[in-house]
């Protein structure tokens, strides 16, 4: 059983996944931020690799990525920083990035290095199903990594089933048709969430995009195995030198 599967076996409801950007707010804050997230209640960490052209992200995560790149963050440096992270962090960690960066690093090398440091899975939102099936999925599996696909309110039922069938770990349910950090109303998507619940999917489902506080986290958890917070946490770290106390303050608000 993978670390992610173990998590959902132990905790099938109310799983909190928090997104953070590697190298943000400071170059060396990557692991301290993850430690703080684990200590203050995150069940799973989605670690974003900063990218110059993040198509699926809204302004807050874009800005954190630009800051991280300016701080000197690179894929190679990230794996260096993560070399010993499993000595202090035992929650599952998935890397989120864009396909171009992975391709440039070398797809197989990226998977091998991720697995070697103890990363559990990948989210590459612009790696499509066709290329996954025909070119890259086997490499990801070979290195024992989970791969998480996204579904949206616009995704057909047939396609949701297919994406669920190809995902391992969990399925990422984007709450509305938007980029990250949107202020679209979560309750407008209730019918879609109910549809996902009734489909008998093989993977646990985490709802993300627009989850920002206790109220929206609880609302999302009512329809899924848990939820993902990204932009709101990145905002909470903005300008904070003490990432541990900023993280504690933010997560205690969500989990109170």
């Amino acid at each position: 059983m993978s670390r992610i599967q173990q998590l959902f076996a132990r905790k099938p409801k109310g799983v909190l996944n928090v997104y953070c950007t590697a190298g943000y707010p400071t170059l060396e804050s990557t692991v301290p931020v993850m430690q703080a997230l684990q200590q203050h209640g995150a069940d799973l960490i989605e670690l974003g690799i900063p990218y110059s052209d993040p198509l699926a992200d809204g302004p807050v995560i874009q800005a954190s990525g630009s800051k991280a790149i300016a701080n000197g963050m690179t894929v190679a440096r990230l794996f260096e920083q993560l070399k010993d992270f499993r000595q202090t962090i035992n929650v599952p960690v998935v890397l989120m990035g864009y396909f171009n960066q992975v391709l440039q690093y070398g797809f197989e090398r990226f998977c091998a290095d991720a697995a070697a440091v103890g990363v559990d899975g990948l989210i590459l939102p612009d790696l499509p199903m066709f290329e996954f099936e025909h070119m890259y999925g086997a490499t990801i599996k070979k290195h024992g990594l989970d791969f998480i696909f996204l579904v949206t309110p616009e995704t057909s039922e047939e396609r949701i089933k297919k994406l669920d069938g190809m995902s391992t770990g969990f399925l990422y349910a984007v709450s509305s048709s938007s980029t990250t950090g949107s202020d679209k109303k979560l309750e407008d998507s209730n019918a879609y969430f109910q549809k996902l619940q009734s489909m008998g999917l093989q993977n646990p489902v985490l709802i993300g995009f627009g989850i920002k506080d206790k109220q929206s986290f609880d609302a999302a958890c009512a329809f899924a195995n848990g939820a993902i917070i990204g932009s709101a946490y990145i905002k909470a770290l903005d300008g904070k030198s003490d990432v541990a106390s900023a993280t504690k303050e933010f997560l205690s608000g969500v989990l109170q």
């Binding site: 198509l55 699926a56 396909f99 939102p125 612009d126 790696l127 499509p128 066709f130 290329e131 696909f149 996204l150 579904v151 949206t152 616009e154 995704t155 057909s156 396609r159 994406l163 984007v174 048709s177 938007s178 980029t179």
Partner: peptide, 11 residues
Amino acid sequence: GGAYIPEMLHR
């Protein structure tokens, strides 16, 4: 070529 797009653009 191809269509390397996030799911949000798929439809």
